[in-house]
Amino acid sequence: MTRVVFVLLPGVHLLDLAGPAQVFHGAYQLTYVAEREHLTSAQGLPVVAQTRWPELERDDLILVPGWRAATLRAGPRPREEELARLRAHHAAGGTVASVCAGAEALGLAGLLDGRRCTTHHDLQDELAARYPRATVVRDVLYTVDDRVVTSAGIASGIDLALHLFSARHGPAAAARVARDMVVYARRNGGEPQASAMLRHRAHLDDTVHRVQDLIDGHFTEPLPLSRLAAHAGVSERTLTRAFTRATGGLTPLRYQQTLRLERAEHLIGHGAMMESAAREVGFEDARMLRRLRARVTVRPAGRPSP
């Protein structure tokens, strides 16, 4: 891969574009193409692109970032020229990729038919309805199927790009890029889009949010209920009732254990031994981690199939 071509549509999300561009920057020639030279991003920043496509080789990559729209149907529609370019590049043995709503472009090009794919969790049902011949994999970071690579929303484009970088240059080189970007070395495609820190924050209880802030920052440490209650300025009983109600049934301890388990699964998915993962997340040994894994059904953080 010597060149990465980004296909930009009106309302392009900046992080969908900038995340992968930062991963590939310095190693490849980056080209930005669009119907018009000037377009406006979803965040209001003007973007300049070129209207002429470069000559592509088989090893080059075409990537379609997502854009701002309430639904896929309501979003901008790629031109037939762009769809034809996607089809032709894939037919010639090249790789095409998308971030978030960019999967719509691959679907319109017919490249999702018979393949696994994903998109942002808010758009997954619509993607499945619009392209019934595709297999939409829900709540994963990215999928790889026959040189068609799709990722979920926003920051997951970085994970997709690091995966492609690693496939070409090896995990050590990808880890160096990730380190420069100050992100995880690389999250596996099968990991969930929404972490526990996000799943249990959809409430309006400020007291519980303050306690969650403390747990999120120190979940590897012992956090007795008395300390959490003192931090919130309420009694232990009041905190337990409020926390359970706000998080849909979790006590502060169960919430902390959920964070520990999720982090341990990430470490194990990246090659850590059970014992070392348990100790890193705050358990004295692996026995408690094994019990939690047996109690809770956790999807293995395996690598996506090629």
Rank of each mutant, 00 (worst) to 15 (best):
V48A: 08
V48H: 12
V48S: 03
V48Y: 08
V48F: 05
A49I: 04
A49E: 01
A49L: 08
Q50Y: 01
Q50N: 03
Q50A: 01
T51C: 15
T51A: 14
T51K: 13
T51R: 10
T51W: 12
R52P: 05
R52C: 09
R52V: 15
R52G: 14
R52D: 14
W53N: 14
W53Q: 04
W53K: 14
P54E: 00
P54Y: 09
P54Q: 02
P54M: 06
P54R: 11
E55L: 12
E55D: 11
E55C: 12
E55S: 07
E55G: 09
L56Y: 05
L56A: 03
L56K: 09
L56Q: 04
E57S: 13
E57K: 12
E57W: 08
E57F: 06
R58Q: 15
R58P: 06
R58K: 15
D59L: 09
D59T: 13
D59G: 11
D59C: 10
D59S: 15
D59V: 14
D60K: 08
D60Q: 11
D60A: 04
D60H: 03
D60C: 09
D60L: 10
L61Y: 03
L61N: 05
L61G: 01
L61R: 01
L61I: 05
L61V: 02
I62N: 01
I62E: 02
I62Y: 01
L63E: 00
L63C: 04
L63K: 00
L63D: 00
V64W: 01
P65L: 04
P65F: 05
P65I: 08
P65M: 08
P65S: 07
P65Q: 04
P65G: 03
P65W: 07
G66Q: 06
G66Y: 06
G66C: 10
G66H: 02
G66I: 14
W67E: 00
W67H: 09
W67F: 07
W67N: 02
R68C: 07
R68F: 12
R68M: 14
R68V: 11
A69F: 12
A70G: 11
A70S: 11
A70H: 14
A70C: 06
T71F: 09
T71Y: 07
T71K: 14
T71C: 06
L72A: 00
L72Q: 00
L72N: 00
L72R: 00
R73V: 12
R73G: 05
R73W: 08
R73K: 13
R73N: 03
A74K: 09
A74D: 12
A74S: 14
G75L: 04
G75V: 02
G75A: 05
P76E: 01
P76L: 11
P76F: 04
P76S: 05
P76R: 10
R77M: 10
R77H: 08
R77D: 09
P78W: 00
P78Q: 03
P78F: 01
P78E: 04
R79T: 13
R79M: 03
E80C: 07
E81Y: 02
